[in-house]
Computed example of a mutant assay.
Amino acid sequence: MLLLHRRYRLLIVNVVYWFLLLYIIAELVWWFIALGRQNEKMAGFELARIRSSLDSASAPGSFNTAVRAVHEQAHMQNMGYIGEGGVFLIVLLLGAFYVYRFVRREMRLSGQQQNFMMAVTHELKTPIAVAKLSLETLARRKLGEEQQAKLIQSALSETERLNQLSTNILLAAQLEEGRYTQILEAVSLSDLVTRSVESFSGRFPGRLQGTHITPDLDIKGDPLLLELAVNNLIENALKYSPKDSPVQVTLSAEGHRAVVFRVADQGAGIPEEEKSMIFRKFYRVGNEQTRTTKGTGLGLYLSRAIVRKHRGQLSVTDNHPRGSIFSITFYI
Rank of each mutant, 00 (worst) to 15 (best):
I25Q: 07
R9P: 02
V16Q: 05
G111H: 07
L165Q: 02
G86A: 07
A34Y: 09
A305K: 14
L20W: 05
L162F: 03
F63I: 05
F63A: 06
F45W: 10
A229T: 02
Q38W: 14
G178V: 02
L47W: 01
F200G: 00
A237P: 01
P215L: 05
S52Y: 00
I90G: 03
V260E: 09
S196D: 08
Q73A: 11
L228C: 03
S166G: 07
T65F: 15
E136I: 10
T317N: 08
V120N: 05
R101Q: 11
L156K: 13
G80K: 11
L10A: 11
N163T: 13
S252V: 10
R262Y: 06
A186F: 08
E198H: 11
L233F: 04
I278E: 04
D55Y: 02
G85E: 04
A237Q: 01
A268E: 15
A69F: 06
G297L: 03
A229L: 04
L208E: 01
L156M: 12
P271W: 01
T167W: 08
S52R: 04
Q248P: 01
H71W: 10
M1Y: 09
N115I: 03
S190P: 00
L192Y: 00
H122Y: 09
A129D: 15
V230W: 00
G206W: 03
L11A: 15
G312T: 03
G111P: 01
L3K: 10
S53F: 04
R49K: 09
T121Y: 09
L208W: 00
E27M: 15
I278D: 04
G36H: 10
S53R: 14
V230R: 00
A119N: 12
G221N: 03
F45H: 10
G286Y: 06
A253W: 02
P60A: 08
R304A: 06
T290N: 10
S62N: 10
K41E: 14
G312P: 06
H320F: 13
R140H: 11
V130H: 08
E146C: 05
G295Y: 01
A57R: 12
A253C: 07
R304N: 13
G44H: 02
L314S: 07
G210S: 09
S53D: 14
A186E: 15
F261W: 02
L225F: 06
L175G: 04
I25P: 01
H75E: 14
R207Q: 07
A172N: 07
E27H: 13
L28K: 03
G221F: 01
A258Q: 13
G299R: 01
P127R: 00
E177M: 11
L10V: 09
P321T: 06
A186V: 13
F63L: 07
N232E: 08
E136H: 06
A139W: 06
T211D: 12
V193M: 02
E254V: 13
L192A: 04
K243L: 14
A149G: 03
S154F: 01
E106N: 13
K150G: 04
A59K: 10
S241I: 00
G210V: 07
L135G: 00
I82M: 13
W18N: 08
V316T: 06
R284L: 15
Q182R: 15
H320Y: 12
L298A: 08
I82K: 09
P242V: 04
